[in-house]
Amino acid sequence: MSYQFNEFHWANDIKAGQYLQPATLAEALDMLASFGGKARVIAGGTDLVPSLRQRHLEVEALVDVSRLPGMDGIARQGEVVSLGGGVTHAQAASSPVVAEAAGLLAAGAGSVGSPQIRNVGTLAGNLIAGQPAADTSLPLLALDAWVTIASPQGQREEPLNGFFLGKGRTKLDPGREIMTGIHFKALGQGRGGSYQRLAKRKAMTLPMLVAAVVAGVDPGRKVFTGAAIALGPVAPTPLRAAQAEALLAGAPVSAESVAAAVEKASEESSPRDSCLRGSCDYRREMVKVFVRRGLADALAQAGCPLD
């Protein structure tokens, strides 16, 4: 047949032959390995369960990592903030550590789904889902975060810049590996951030556009020491507007340099026309508005506001 049965027919259940509850990380990795890629890690399940019901994904087993030790902590050591792989959106949104170190991440986490979703959904799950506009992926990408991944070969670290490979695909193998930590350097001292979101309604909706921005400045000289602009959904993966960022590095903090970066970020964006999330033309216009607002907001936070 020329069509997909599952596009026109729906089940009221999910299918997984086994539900496994490992006590340790090593056990969890072994369990995953024993299914040869046909098992999936489940933490909150808020992304996974709907795709299982819609049969977008078929698995033999679910491996629940939510009770593994050491997965739900939020800690700061010096400049580095670390979130465990099981940290929920609600935890991140209400954590004083996150609020102080990266308000844009707290804001992003607080924008995910609904209170009920935020109570169980995890930041790691948001990253692994590999969606182009996940509310926590974009702030983390702008923060130059890196993640710790446990695999049968051992632990490794991956920077988020480069982690996203395509829609729904990342450098983590979801059938064999587990994300155990998320890390980033705290803002402060000449670094500010901002989270900007556009949506069709005021709660519980996927964004039409998110812009997460970090700006580093030398307040004395009034120049950008660096900038990170993460955008979505404007490409198949969360996008770092690298050319716009390059324009800002070393540039004076001025309306002109911001305007140039805004135009460049818009050029770098290539959103598709979507009947649900808006046309390409509109979203490119909105990239300009939100990058401008984001930079202004981040600069103000960094102690070097645009006049």
Partner: peptide, 8 residues
Amino acid sequence: PVNSCLLP
């Protein structure tokens, strides 16, 4: 509060 339709 959680959505019981999403929770194994």
